[in-house]
C-alpha cells in the first residue's frame, strides 16, 4: 500500500452533536422568519423559510436562538431521557 508522505486529514468530521442536547428549542407560530436566531447560532444550523427550521441532528441545545429572539418565538423544552 502506497502511503502519502505527511500528516494530513481529508475526511470531513461530522459528529452528530444533536445527541448532546438536554433542551430542545421549539419554534412557535410567533416566529416571523426575521433570521436573528440563524445569524447567532454557533453551529449555523437554522434555516429560515416561512419560519426558523432547526436541524436537530446537530443542535446542541445551547439556547442562544431562544435568548436572541425578539419575538419570544422559541421555547426551550426539556428533552425526554
Amino acid at each position: 500500500m502506497k502511503h502519502k508522505a505527511g500528516i494530513y486529514a481529508v475526511t470531513i468530521t461530522d459528529t452528530k452533536t444533536g445527541a448532546w442536547r438536554l433542551n430542545r428549542p421549539v419554534v412557535s407560530e410567533k416566529c416571523t422568519a426575521c433570521g436573528i436566531c440563524a445569524k447567532f447560532c454557533p453551529p449555523q444550523i437554522i434555516k429560515i423559510e416561512d419560519r426558523a427550521i432547526i436541524d436537530y441532528e446537530y443542535c446542541k441545545g445551547c439556547g442562544i436562538c431562544d435568548s436572541v429572539c425578539p419575538f419570544k418565538a422559541i421555547a426551550m423544552v426539556e428533552e425526554e431521557a
Binding site: K4, A5, I7, Y8
Partner: peptide, 26 residues
C-alpha cells in the same frame, strides 16, 4: 509539490492532532 499541500482546489488539513491509533504508523 509532495503529497501534502495547501490548495483550495484540493483542500486538506495538515499537521493535525493524532492519537495513539495512528501516531506509531506515521
Amino acid at each position: 509539490r509532495g503529497d501534502i499541500y495547501l490548495d483550495p482546489d484540493d483542500p486538506m488539513t495538515i499537521n493535525q492532532l493524532n492519537s495513539e491509533a495512528t501516531f506509531t504508523e506515521l
